[in-house]
Amino acid sequence: MYQANRTRYDEMVYNRVGNSGLKLSAIGLGLWNNFGSVDPLERQRAIIHQAFDLGITYFDLANNYGPVPGSAEANFGRILASDLRPYRDELVIASKAGYLMWPGPYGNWGSRKSLIASADQSLRRTGLDYFDIFYSHRADPETDPEETATALDQLVRSGKTLYVGLSNYSGEQVRAMSAIFKDLHTPFIIDQPRYNLLNRQIETDVLPVLTDERKAAVSFSSLCQGLLTDKYLHGIPANSRAEKGTIPFLHPAQVEQTLNTVKALNAVAADRGQSLAQMALAWNLRQPAIASVLIGASRPEQVVNNVQALQHLNFTSTELRRIDDILAAQPAIDWQAK
């Protein structure tokens, strides 16, 4: 019988989500990879136990996470039922809808039909009565934003989620949706954008809007699919995901394009007494609007190492200038490279 570590809250940092009453663990566990039907359930269980034992309370899912789509939610639901049910009120569990989930015109995008059906399916797979946060996973160019917003509002009013969020929306789209949510009195509190040392677009797009609207962000791809770790410092290892091309956004060309930059950043991290991954997570958290950064993990030890980023969150002005100079010298990256 699993019993959580009694000291799990002693070292973790918890940040308020905008002007809401909710706080998130500064490190959250994303279940995009390594939690599907092709991954051993006992390894998933060990990773989730380790995360919670270290004070991670934010667990991030989506309807299509797997493979196969839906299996990450189903597996998390099994672990919740067998191990974490007594701790449900200590957890913030999120899911999303908006990417292709089932065939036909209703298993994708952001219509009322799609979002509400998807939320119901996700609740059944996880065995939950409600989600803490439910996100629109991407903006739908063919659906009126008000329809998407009112569908999310309905999920709150029907008790299926406590809060709502957006993901992969531009700053302009976040501002427009925020205005609708404000009129509806919907508890929209958070946005989930891609953000890391090698992809800083949201600094001039999404983050200023979130600051103006008094909302927060939880960043994904915080380690750029492994580029911002020591895994690729000496090239592309055999059987790595970059070598196989099994993860979107990470292919051999991107490793080659960023190798000199990553080596220079690693030197900064070493001078700070951190691994590159730890520095990359701390660097994201320097942004006041970012309440939490998502990590992925294929084994419990990675969770332990990443949480150690919280031991050294502060940067000197010299360190920040050094990082900016390194990033300024990085040639443009072709994120669509194959």
Rank of each mutant, 00 (worst) to 15 (best):
E42T: 12
R125D: 09
R45S: 14
S240E: 02
Q154M: 10
V68R: 09
D39A: 10
H49R: 13
R321S: 13
V92M: 11
S292C: 14
L152M: 06
G226T: 08
D132W: 01
Q278R: 02
L320S: 02
C224Q: 14
R194N: 01
V218D: 00
Q287V: 00
V206N: 08
V268Y: 02
L155H: 05
Q311A: 15
A151K: 05
L80M: 15
R157S: 13
T229M: 06
R321H: 10
R194C: 14
A264S: 14
T258N: 06
G107Q: 11
V17H: 01
F188K: 02
T57D: 13
V303F: 00
S136Q: 08
G18I: 11
R241P: 02
T258M: 02
N33Q: 15
L91D: 07
P187D: 05
S298W: 04
S240Y: 10
V68S: 10
E90L: 02
R125N: 09
W102R: 14
S118G: 12
L100Q: 12
V92F: 11
S122N: 04
T57A: 08
A74C: 03
G296K: 08
G104I: 14
A97Y: 13
V255L: 10
A328Q: 12
K96W: 10
A280G: 05
G107M: 12
G171Q: 03
Q311E: 15
P331G: 06
L265H: 11
R286Y: 04
R194G: 03
P67F: 04
V68H: 08
L207E: 05
A264T: 13
L100A: 14
Y169K: 05
A337W: 08
K96Y: 11
H185I: 06
I247L: 12
S118E: 12
G104L: 11
L281T: 14
A282E: 03
Q154I: 05
Y2P: 03
Q201I: 15
V206K: 03
